[in-house]
């Protein structure tokens, strides 16, 4: 089948970008979305032009590198699917597909579809860990953890740090990402000890990085490729409230 692509091209953060059109792109329905971009890039290189810069690595939906807004939706139309796992059989012959980067003031554009998501690393550095040094641990089975609890913690921990939640949010809020981390650790006995200080530090860091406020639109949950639940946000809000009351005492 043939598609028309409109792709955001921008040399660097200081220049203005625009959508560029690529007509008659030859597509096999079994290709992944990124393999389609590969084909376009091979063509561009053959014409001695600059290929489209985009991030990707695992191409298995787990590293969180890929990050395209496809027809207005972060990671495209398929529920619970990253860009790299999206396959072309979900598009129709003759369709026009618009491809843009994940946009947010806290994710400055580096080039074309590549943005800087290092703010997420800094949120984790502010407190997204359990303070246990190598070799200090007790036997792994010494604290049984109820299976349901462990499973809920795992679900929160399956966030891939892609930033689609930020790109989807009208306020560019990072609440879903931050709350997934806060919940993952707070739900487990190992993380409980530092739960209060952790939530305070991480939320403060998130604000400092310039992410917007959460107004409960729920767009993040809809676009999250790992279907991280918005319940994590409620859980984090409760924990934050509790912790801030505690710290005023």
């Amino acid at each position: 089948m043939k598609l028309t692509l409109k792709v955001w091209r921008q040399k660097n953060v200081n220049t203005k970008g625009s959508l560029e059109t690529y007509n008659n792109v030859d597509v096999d329905p079994d290709m992944s979305f990124l393999e389609m971009i590969d084909v376009v890039n091979e063509q561009l290189i053959a014409e001695k032009k600059e290929p489209i810069a985009f991030e990707h690595d695992c191409r298995e939906g787990i590293c969180g590198a890929c990050s395209m807004v496809i027809n207005g939706r972060p990671h495209g139309p398929q529920q619970g699917t990253t860009t790299c796992q999206l396959h072309m059989r979900h598009f129709k012959d003759g369709e026009t597909v618009v491809i843009e980067p994940f946009r947010s003031a806290s994710f400055p554009i580096i080039k074309d579809l590549v943005v800087d998501r290092s703010a997420f690393d800094r949120i984790i550095q502010s407190g997204g860990y359990v303070s246990v040094k190598t070799g200090q641990a007790q036997d792994a089975n010494s604290i049984p953890i109820e299976k349901g609890l462990a499973d809920t913690a795992f679900e929160a921990a399956s966030c891939i740090g892609c930033g689609a939640c930020v790109a989807a949010c009208p306020n560019a809020s990072a609440m879903l990402f931050t709350s997934a981390k806060v919940s993952h650790l707070a739900l487990l006995p190992q993380g409980e000890v530092e739960a209060e200080s952790r939530v305070m530090k991480m939320v403060d860091k998130m604000d400092e990085e310039g992410f917007g406020m959460c107004s409960n639109t729920g767009a993040c949950e809809v676009e999250c490729p790992k279907e991280i639940s918005i319940e994590n946000i409620a859980r984090m809000n409760r924990a934050y409230l509790k912790a801030s009351l505690g710290s005023e005492k």
Binding site: G135, A137, Q138, A140, N141, P144, A153, F154, Q190
Partner: peptide, 22 residues
């Protein structure tokens, strides 16, 4: 054996059985 202890202490959510053990 130390690796598993370390990872659990860090909050790695390994699969568990109904009794709560790994």
């Amino acid at each position: 054996v130390d690796i598993i202890d370390q990872c659990v202490a860090q909050g790695v959510p390994f699969a568990r059985e109904y009794g709560g053990l790994l």
